[in-house]
Design a protein around this nucleic acid. Sequence first.
DNA 1: TCCGATGCCTAGCATTGCGAGGTATGAGAG
DNA 2: CTCTCATACCTCGCAATGCTAGGCATCGGA
Lengths: 108, 108
Amino acid sequence: MLKGHLDMLILSVLARRPRHGYAIIEDLRATSRDALDLPEGTLYPALHRLERAGLVAGTWSEASGRRRKSYALTPLGMTTLTEERRTWTRFSAAVGAVLEEVPWPSIS
Amino acid sequence: MLKGHLDMLILSVLARRPRHGYAIIEDLRATSRDALDLPEGTLYPALHRLERAGLVAGTWSEASGRRRKSYALTPLGMTTLTEERRTWTRFSAAVGAVLEEVPWPSIS
DNA sequence: TCCGATGCCTAGCATTGCGAGGTATGAGAG
DNA sequence: CTCTCATACCTCGCAATGCTAGGCATCGGA
């Protein structure tokens, strides 16, 4: 489970450059070295959500007989990403602080 | 939202020493320096879930007129915690890797 | 010709966190 | 004495979320 951090990850990928859905999956898999592998049933609804919310803008195109919908970050998407990044940093630091208190054998 | 990492956090607190519900909230708030502040409506159902799953064991006690239910980690809870910790480490590293690729102004 | 990769989609489920409400006791303020 | 706050537990029901499982279509290579 990606548990609510999904949006941030998608926005992060799109912040680098616009991409279509399928490519987002591959990009995420690559930059995370296979740790993050989104099912399509997860990604596409999420993209639609983000589009409805105005965080990304999708445009259809046709490349070699295949229809693609490319998504780009909107200004609102950018500010949202920045904010979510801040939240993530705080959150992961807090979790880290809690975990550090845990005694052996949890250090692994 | 704690998004699925809730169990790990609760188990982490209990790994240090058994605690009753209310104390878990305070403990978490303290070790995270106020970053993590669980609502009771979040914690108690979670504890019941964990108890049903056999990850923690609850025992009632009476201290100065107040009934308390103290929870302790079971062996299964300990192994689960270790596993979830590993998952968290991998996950947060992966997210970190993705975020690092994001261009300005997300470096903040 | 047929399969796998590309590329998109939806319906419906199960889980989860949380807000809102409820109960009861003890301590301290006024 | 009363009232409020902190302690300490609980449940109901909502809203969101991620995912499984299905579906459709095209292209390239075996």
